[in-house]
Every structure is written in structure tokens, then in C-alpha cells.
Nucleic acid binder design. Structure first.
Lengths: 186, 186
DNA sequence: GTCTATACCTAGATAGAC
DNA sequence: GTCTATCTAGGTATAGAC
């Protein structure tokens, strides 16, 4: 595997478990077994690293959402798969959505990174809106009135569920938080 | 006003806008107009500062929730006041709930701080549960079935709404995220 | 209780050999 | 592409004068 990819993998794990300010090139170097100077060859500044991180993360997640749409024809199936995705991302409370790490740090990040976090939220919300719109047609999610509002609510819900479950290091908190949404799926 | 209080105020603002790793004693010193060495007199380590921050934050918020319960007899009024509290805390997207900052950082924090974040979430969820339980009696919030699940969901929702609104620096995102919950209040 | 001075460390980043 | 060596800046924290 390419060093750039290995670096991104390790950096993503570190950023999602400790925050973007919570690890250094030194930590990253220890993780992948090279010297920190070598990392600068691939990602000259930590800002560059943040751009690469969010860019890949965004593509990966949007890809998975697209695949969910292909595999699941019903709105309920799509919603449950979406919840599975965020559940898996939590890794038992050890890891957060990368966007949360970047939303907190924010100030020192390149504008491109901040823009990509925004785009990510916007695109995920749009995907969710299509799910809730579909639900109004196929009736597999209970009590949907405004698909746009539902979408923004569902996105905030899973991000917040990450926060709460992470603070408690307890997946049960995640389950409790999403319960009212999950049980609306038929 | 006491220096300790001035320091806590400034530290809270910094932590909630940049994350707990996003500011130093030097930044804090600049904010309050004393030297960073003087801060160590009041809070010897940054860990001590984190303990003082979360302790005061927890008390303040729980106090406000208690006052809401006194002033608002109806479940809907309490829920809307709760949403007002989190809306105000966002400060137009500039500031997050302190717990989010601590949930991300986590690893380097004293155990007492981590425990207090947990306690905070637990107590807020308990307060919300009483609200939803009341709602089943007075009928001022639509479609409440499981008060416990509603409580955990509402807490995660407002925390996540903070994240999304902060990333976009746009209060409209907060409103969009809480819309389906807010409109259930009668 | 606040200051200056400083110790000690780690951060991000660069230069140049290999 | 990775290394050693080094720079500069900044971090947390302490000692001791005022």
C-alpha cells in the first residue's frame, strides 16, 4: 500500500479519536513507523493533511450512501443502513465522525477544509431528504411530513449521538439516542 | 469580579469556540490581561482548569433547567425553553456546548472531567425525560410514546445541531435540525 | 496575587545527505 | 522517499522577587 494512504488511514484514526489538535506529526510518525520529516514530503503542512483527510472521507461516505440507494429500494431500508453506517463509524465509542473533530477545531484549518465539511453536511442532508421523500411515497417510515426538516434532524441526531456515546464510551447511548428515529422504520 | 471567575469566563469562551486543545495559557493570559504564570496560581495545570470549567458549566445549566421547570408548568413550554437555552448557547455558531469540546479531546483530560461530562449528559437526559413524561399527561407535545427514548434523542439532537450549525456558521442549520422536535410542541 | 525569568519539552517545518 | 539534524516558535509548568 502507498505511504500516502497509510498516512491518511493513521491520521484519520488519530483525528477521529483525539481530535485534529490532539495528535502531532510525531504521533503519526510513530504509528506508521517512519520519521516525522518524511511525512512533510507527502503532506507539507498539517493543513494539507486536513484537506486530504476530509476530501477522502467525504468521497468515501457519499459513495457508501450511493451504494445504499442502489441496494435498498425502500426508504426504511435506506434509513436503517444509514444508521448502521454511523453506528459502525463510532467503533464502540472510540471514534467520531471526522466532521465533528473539524467542527470543533475549525479556527486554524484551511478554508478548503472548512468548506468541505460544510459540503459534506449539505450532501448528506440532501441524500437523507431523498430518503424521507421516498418514504412519503412508499410509507415505510412512519409520520413523515417535511422531508427537508426530517433530513436535517436525522443528520444532527446521528452526529449528536456520536458525541454522547463517545463521552460515555458506551454504544448503548448511541442506540438510545437514535431509538425514536429507528423505530419509525417499518 | 474575582480573577478566578474572569479566568473561567475567558477559558469557557475559548474552549467552546476553539476546543480545549485550541487555546493555551498564553492565549488566556492575553484575554484577561495578566501573565500566563499568574494563571498557574489559580489553576496549576490545564487539567485543573478543565475540572473547574465543566463543574461550573454543569451547575449553571442544571440550575437553568431547574428554573425552567419552576416557570413553565406545561411540557411544551419546558421543551421550547430547553431549545432556547441551546440556541442561545450557540451564539450564532461561534460557540459550542462545552461538552462537545471535551468529548472530542477526552484522552488527555483528568478522569474527573470525563466523569463530569458523563454526569452532565445523564442529568440533562433525566430532566428531559421528566418533560416527556409530563407531556404524556398534559398532551402538549405530540406523539410521545417512550419518554426515555425521546429524552436521549432530544439531547443528541441539540448537540448535533450545535455541530452542524457551527460547521456552517449558520443558525438556520440549528433551526432546521430542531424543527421536527420544536413543531411537536403544542 | 502578580510579576520576570527560565527550564524543559514538543510542536510544525526546512535543509541537505543518502 | 526517507533519513538525520536543526530551526524557530510555542506549549506547560516552576522558582523566586516584589
Amino acid at each position: 500500500m502507498e505511504t500516502k494512504t497509510i498516512l491518511l488511514d493513521a491520521a484519520e484514526t488519530l483525528a477521529r479519536s483525539r481530535g485534529f489538535d490532539g495528535f502531532s506529526y510525531g504521533d503519526l510518525a510513530d504509528c506508521v513507523g517512519i520519521r516525522k520529516a518524511s511525512i512533510h514530503y507527502h503532506y507539507p503542512t498539517k493543513g494539507d493533511l486536513s484537506v486530504a483527510l476530509i476530501s477522502r472521507y467525504r468521497e468515501t461516505v457519499l459513495d457508501r450512501l450511493a451504494r445504499i440507494s442502489e441496494c435498498e429500494s425502500r426508504a426504511s431500508g435506506r434509513l436503517l443502513a444509514f444508521l448502521d453506517l454511523y453506528r459502525a463509524a463510532l467503533q464502540g465509542g472510540r471514534s467520531l465522525c471526522l466532521c465533528i473533530a473539524f467542527s470543533v477545531t475549525q479556527s486554524a484549518l484551511p478554508d478548503e477544509t472548512r468548506q468541505d465539511v460544510k459540503r459534506f453536511h449539505k450532501e448528506v442532508a440532501q441524500w437523507l431528504e431523498t430518503v424521507f421523500r421516498l418514504a412519503r411515497g412508499d410509507g415505510t417510515i412512519r409520520a413523515v411530513t417535511d422531508p427537508g426538516a426530517e433530513a436535517h434532524g436525522a443528520l444532527a441526531l446521528v452526529e449528536g449521538a456520536h458525541i454522547v456515546a463517545r463521552a460515555a464510551t458506551d454504544m448503548a447511548r448511541f442506540e438510545a439516542a437514535i431509538d425514536t428515529l429507528r423505530t419509525r422504520a417499518i
